[in-house]
Design a protein around this nucleic acid. Structure first.
Lengths: 343, 343
DNA sequence: TTTTTTTGTGCAATCGTTTGAACATGTCAA
DNA sequence: TTGACATGTTCAAACGATTGCACAAAAAAA
């Protein structure tokens, strides 16, 4: 008994048949006698034979592995997406290789290389904050390599993208604030180069316009890093003096909103009485903070599921790049909690 | 130009040399003329040659891939661990294959099979809540297959485990509550079959004993699912009548603690005036809820890093199972916030 | 000039599996 | 007795790369 796994060769040798016979017997090919099939299967069972997926990969040029490239695992949103990806992949016999870029372009590039080297069958991408040039992805697309972008989508032709309706989500959120009587609404926005940021800002602006409110350019403040600390600094600066103070905040995501809330509390401003707050993404904690944070829920799990289903269809040629509408847009849902409701 | 990748054969054919020569030229083997080397490298560059990792895997029986088996990606703790794993793996040229079990034993077993089929070089495991029988892991261990357990560790001989000092963390937390003047301390505990749960409970009990407080068996309540809802139910039940009401809660982790806090607020009990609360794990939201939650921080990222480093050492035979102390125990840190500090 | 040494390449096997084609062997009909 | 056919099995090449060994040609030593 050799160390490690039994192979088809071991079975063949022990039964004095050829490896071809073993291979066919195991897969119930016609033209193998029942007796042989039985013997082979029994021995395979006994030796705990398990096909070598690597050899199969090589032979079939198919690895049953998909790659996922994301900025950071620890973002609640991304981890829910991964969860959805993993579910669908697992159900279809696919493995998931994970690369996080930590928002670095270099890591993203080298992740793409690694994945291609590993002969993955397809890849799901949400690119880094630093990525403005998409050559490394364009290369894959040109090859016809199955690739689906989600959440953060590139400005490229002929790509398949799965996103949520960031525009509508933002629009709804701001409209809701206006409906509650807030008029001086600040937007703490995301990194300029991401489509999601642009869409959310556009939703914000359009909601203001449709409500007959003039947007104040000074009240659109970029929080590119999206950290709590950054948000606290910016919010404190903005609210510390009382003259023409804004009365509501629409934040690019919940961490930023939570940071803002902490800053407001420190300034002794009441939420939502003095300032209404709405976030984005419905992070796990959002319902647990005080007051519970109104937010725009993105169906992360569903994004993962959808993107993966499409990717698997692409891989299995059930469809090709053209047969899909380029953008799958999932609906967001505005969750109204106390942080934005005037009593 | 064939679809997909250029291979060594393509280079060989184009230059009228053998594949062996190409292979050696690319790796700067001695005994290849500089002229040939140059030609080969230039063409490789031009064709964007990228070695086929699958073929390499097969040839070398080494895939430069490690597997990670965890209950759920969306747990903040696990996502930080993954992040640490990914960092170290990436830095050493290893890929990470991810399987989440969703706390299901069946999925865990089939994940193990998949990973073995895929010839991964080693695996990091935190097993499911359902796992009480470790046969599927024992098999790997018997083979001498590199495996490192983290956080949730099995009751097996000769395993390498990376954990935090759950006992000490719990002890410190409860001692802190006592020091603050709390005396009637409830423990919302985790699933009975997990070592971490046992350790935390033991820390709780010992801290009480060392403080001269008799433990009340009715005040150790299992929250096996660790969800907010479960915790709300249990806490409400426990605190709803005023007779001999507990005055503090030590929860198995922060979600449970947060649920308890919501229940307490609903009952109009003040935190920390009426009831002190300490959680475990330092989830991302813990500092943002109101009042900020005292908690025992586990170095998730560091666990991931440490476990991966050890695993890579095992894989590269820099060390073997025996050369490590069986348990690497990392220190926790008690983060004292408002939820447990009497004013 | 012959022998030895050095230098540069190629051959072929190998990793584990699949698969088209060829090959025995047996059965049956003419 | 011969040919036609079915049945069960094996051969060998292929996937892409590595590597011990053999071998040819050129250079150096005798």
């Amino acid at each position: 008994m050799k160390p490690g796994q039994a192979t088809i060769k071991d079975i063949a040798k022990e039964l004095n048949v050829s490896t071809s016979t073993v291979s066919r017997a195991l897969k119930d090919y016609p033209g193998i006698s029942d007796k042989t099939k039985r013997k082979v299967k029994e021995l395979a069972e006994k030796l705990k034979y398990r096909p070598n997926a690597v050899a199969l990969s090589l032979r079939k040029s198919k690895s049953y592995t998909i790659g996922v490239i994301i900025p950071e695992v620890v973002h609640f949103f991304f981890s829910t997406v991964i969860s959805g990806v993993e579910e669908v992949a697992f159900a279809n016999g696919y493995n998931v290789i994970l690369c996080q870029t930590n928002e670095k372009l270099n890591r993203e590039k080298s992740s793409v290389e690694t994945m291609l080297s590993n002969q993955i069958d397809g890849v799901l991408v949400s690119f880094s904050r630093e990525t403005t040039n998409f050559e490394h992805f364009q290369k894959m697309i040109d090859y016809g390599f199955p690739i689906v972008f989600f959440d953060r989508i590139p400005d490229l032709e002929n790509t398949i993208n799965v996103t949520v309706n960031d525009y509508q989500g933002a629009y709804d959120a701001v409209k809701h604030l206006v409906d509650q009587g807030f008029k001086k609404i600040v937007h703490l926005s995301g990194p300029e180069n991401l489509t999601i940021s642009k869409q959310r800002k556009k939703g914000y602006l359009d909601a203001l316009r449709d409500s007959g409110i003039d947007a104040n350019p000074d009240w659109i403040l970029e929080c590119p890093y999206g950290t709590e600390k950054e948000s606290i600094l910016i919010t404190t600066e903005l609210f510390k003096n009382n003259e023409n103070r804004p009365d509501a905040i629409f934040a690019h995501h919940d961490i930023v909103a939570a940071g803002a809330m902490m800053a407001l509390k420190a300034l002794d401003l009441k939420i939502p009485e003095d300032v209404g707050v709405v976030g984005f993404s419905n992070w796990q904690f959002s319902s647990m903070i005080d007051p519970p944070l109104s937010t725009v829920a993105q169906p992360g799990f569903q994004i993962g599921e959808t993107a993966t289903k499409i990717l698997l269809d692409l891989i299995n040629k059930k469809s090709n790049m053209e047969s899909f509408s380029q953008n799958i847009v999932l609906d967001t849902e505005l969750l109204i909690r106390k942080s934005s409701v005037k009593v």
